[in-house]
Amino acid sequence: MSNKTIMDYDTVALDDAKSALVIIDQTKLPYSTEILELTDLKEIWDAIYLLQVRGAPAIGVAAAIGIYLEAKKIGVEETEFDGFYEKFAKAKEYLDSARPTAVNLSWALNRMEQVVLTNKTRSVEEIVKCLHDEAVEIREEDILVCRAIGEHGLTLIKDGDGILTHCNAGKLAAVKYGTATAPIYVGQEKGYSFRVFADETRPLLQGARLTAFELKESGIDVTLICDNMSNMVMRNGWVNAIFVGCDRVAANGDVANKIGTSIVATVAKRYNIPFYVCAPTATIDMATPTGNEIKIEQRKAEEVTEMWYEKRMAPDGVKVYNPAFDVTDNDLITGIVTEFGIARAPYSESLKKIFTMKS
């Protein structure tokens, strides 16, 4: 019998020998740990859309590996740059359509495209090799970036604190450490103990199925609560800080994250509890002025009316509004924790400073 836990598996990896993107199928957790080896672009598109791989950082890494694998195939058919690039660009556009809200998807694909354009005078074979190296680098960078977010986030809390988180911005949403959970995992490595409250996160239950699962597997003291219980744990004085991830940060500090995040932020402000967003700079979109311009993904009604239930739990024909994300206004956010440090209001200025460090 294997003694492996979910923490022993790679969330996203490349098996170059098999020309496969290797992921944990997160739709099957926590009931079973199934590893998928995806070799076809449609399979990879489906995996991103169907949330088999999810979380902004993990989506970006999966996209980079996916477009490299497709380029590897194209390179067999097209040995001249123009023909290669035409098919590459078409594949990139297709993969980019899988999820509209998470900016890491387009960020990773644009970065891979830039590799192609920068090396256009080289042979297609050499370009494909450069794409391989870039995809591997993006994956390794994600580990370092999340670790740095953890170090910065850890300065905001102390041993024994109670922490609340929403959705899953953990190890399963990245290659390692996660974003919102990075301070927790880095703190654990240093001998800290925390009490974590994980919101269930309806309707897809990422907090229940994924965050509670990975924290429990890691030996973290975690308590699962329904989304509408967050007010009680805050009112009871059990929460010292809130850490969430996000899928896109606008230039003014507005943040799009899993639906329900803005409610947590609003309640936190009522009780003067610091609310922190953990975001790699790859998730910060300086080209989007405010949260009003962020496209919010709308998902199928069945996720609300029948998923997770033996029988349909809502009347046939009822109208359903099912946005995957909401926008948390910047005035509700205490700080945005990046790999380069912590941005604070006014975010239009502090985020620009963060990007000067990046460059």
Rank of each mutant, 00 (worst) to 15 (best):
M7V: 15
T11C: 13
V12K: 01
L21Y: 14
V22L: 10
I24T: 10
T27Y: 03
T33P: 00
L38T: 00
T39W: 09
D46E: 13
Q52I: 02
R54H: 02
P57R: 08
G60K: 07
A71Y: 04
K73Y: 10
I74A: 04
V76Y: 03
E77D: 10
T79D: 14
D82H: 10
A91P: 04
A91Q: 01
K92R: 13
E93W: 04
R111H: 15
Q114A: 10
K120A: 11
K120I: 01
K129H: 05
K129L: 14
G150D: 01
E151L: 14
K158G: 06
D159A: 13
D161I: 08
K176G: 10
Y177Q: 11
V186S: 02
Q188I: 07
K190F: 04
Y192I: 09
R202H: 01
R209C: 13
K216F: 14
K216P: 00
K216W: 03
V233M: 10
V239W: 08
I242T: 12
V249A: 11
A256I: 01
N257L: 04
T266G: 11
V277D: 05
C278K: 01
T281R: 07
K295C: 07
I296M: 13
Q298R: 13
R299Q: 07
T305E: 05
M307G: 02
E310D: 08
V318L: 14
N330Q: 13
N330L: 08
T334Q: 08
T334Y: 02
